[in-house]
Amino acid sequence: MTDNDGLRAIGSLPTQSRRKTYEHVYRALRHALISGRIPEGTHLVETELAAQLGVSRTPVRDALRRLESDGFVARGTAGGLWSRGIGPDEIADLFLVRTELEKLAARLACERAKPEQWAEPRSLIAQMGAAIDEFGLGSEEFGEIHLAFHTSVYRIAFGNRFAGLLDNYLLQCLDVAAELSYRDPACALPAVQQHEELLAELSSGDVSRAVAAAEAHVRRSADDAHRASTDTTLS
Rank of each mutant, 00 (worst) to 15 (best):
A130D: 02
A131P: 00
A131V: 01
I132W: 01
I132E: 11
D133A: 15
D133P: 00
D133V: 05
D133T: 09
E134Y: 01
F135Q: 12
F135T: 06
G136I: 01
L137H: 07
G138P: 05
G138F: 04
E140A: 15
E140M: 11
E140R: 15
E140P: 06
E140Q: 15
E141T: 02
E141H: 12
E141Q: 15
E141C: 00
G143M: 06
G143P: 01
G143T: 04
E144Y: 05
E144I: 02
I145Q: 07
I145E: 07
H146T: 06
L147C: 10
L147Y: 08
A148V: 10
A148K: 09
F149M: 09
F149A: 02
H150N: 12
H150T: 09
H150V: 08
H150Q: 12
T151G: 01
T151Y: 03
T151F: 06
T151H: 06
S152Y: 03
S152D: 03
S152V: 11
V153E: 02
Y154F: 15
Y154H: 13
R155G: 06
R155D: 07
R155P: 01
I156G: 01
I156F: 09
A157T: 00
F158A: 12
G159Y: 05
G159C: 10
G159I: 04
N160P: 05
N160V: 14
R161E: 14
R161G: 04
F162I: 07
F162K: 05
A163V: 11
A163Q: 06
A163D: 02
G164C: 05
G164H: 11
G164V: 07
L165I: 14
L165S: 14
L165P: 03
L165G: 03
L165T: 10
L166Y: 05
L166C: 13
D167Q: 13
N168Y: 13
N168H: 15
Y169C: 03
Y169M: 10
L170V: 15
L170R: 14
L171N: 09
L171R: 09
L171Y: 05
C173M: 08
C173P: 00
C173K: 11
C173T: 12
L174P: 04
V176M: 11
A177R: 06
A178I: 06
E179C: 03
E179M: 10
L180H: 00
S181G: 09
S181H: 08
